[in-house]
């Protein structure tokens, strides 16, 4: 009787587990979302959490498109397609006033956790490391470095610098704060680019993707001066 009951409970749990959309453990969540969101958005009243994985989207080309936009292959351990990303949509009553989202990024001494806060249009309003295991962590976490990213958008990571063709604008405008941790600086830029690409794909309807694509098309046709509708709705 006891054995049958145990088998029923075990079977029920397994059915229950498979009944949901199974995937890997969540990638990068905020350790203390209430305190962090209240600090970044003082007017916030609450937030809404969404867990989104590349594999869950009805878009077979999404993984490849993210890699193409990133200009790099995604790591098959830390950036597998079934890793869910947590997106915190910050609310003031029912109005969306921003988002907070994080990514894991491989660093020299283990994974870094890069947290971005953006306004409804995807403009960076805050950046901080939730975890960085670098010997020069103090230099990277210093506000003098992280504040340089405020006001930037994904376009700054994808448009070329005017004085340095082929180099993303962000790399020519932000200095490496470390003496001997160039790899972690470059990993930070890669992680932030990835973070903003995923935000664009998951939350902003690819508005930045369309803008860059249209600009490049216009450059090719000589119509670079035309202003395009970005389609960013803000919510």
């Amino acid at each position: 009787m006891k054995g049958a009951a145990v088998r029923c409970v075990v079977g029920g749990l397994l059915v229950a587990a498979f009944a949901t959309s199974a995937g890997a453990a969540v990638g990068c969540t905020l350790n203390d979302p209430d305190r962090d969101i209240r600090r970044i958005f003082p007017g916030a009243t609450n937030y809404r959490t969404d867990f989104i994985a590349i594999a869950d989207r009805a878009d077979d080309g999404l993984y490849a498109r993210v890699e193409r936009r990133l200009g790099d292959e995604l790591d098959d351990v830390y950036e597998a397609p079934d890793v869910p990303y947590a997106y915190y949509t910050v609310l003031q009553d029912e109005e969306v006033i921003g988002r907070v989202h994080g990514v894991n990024q491989k660093g020299t001494y283990g994974g870094m956790q890069l947290i971005l806060a953006t306004d409804p249009d995807g403009v960076v309003v805050d950046f901080y490391y939730q975890r960085i295991a670098s010997p020069e962590a103090d230099e990277f976490t210093d506000e003098a470095f992280t504040s340089q990213f405020v006001g930037l958008t994904l376009l700054d990571f994808q448009r070329e610098a005017e004085n340095a063709p082929g180099v993303p604008r962000v790399e020519s405008s932000i200095d490496d704060p470390s003496d001997e941790s160039r790899e972690d600086f470059e990993a930070t830029l890669r992680g932030l680019r990835k973070n903003l690409i995923l935000l664009d794909e998951f939350m902003l309807g690819n508005s930045y993707y369309r803008e860059i694509r249209n600009e490049r098309r216009d450059e090719g046709s000589g119509n670079a001066h035309e202003k395009r509708d970005t389609g960013r709705t803000g919510g």
Binding site: T20, A25, T45, R48, F51
Partner: peptide
């Protein structure tokens, strides 16, 4: 297994 679920309204979780 583990399951984590967040229930939210228009005013948040």
């Amino acid at each position: 297994f583990e399951t984590l679920a967040r229930l939210s309204s228009e005013r948040g979780d």
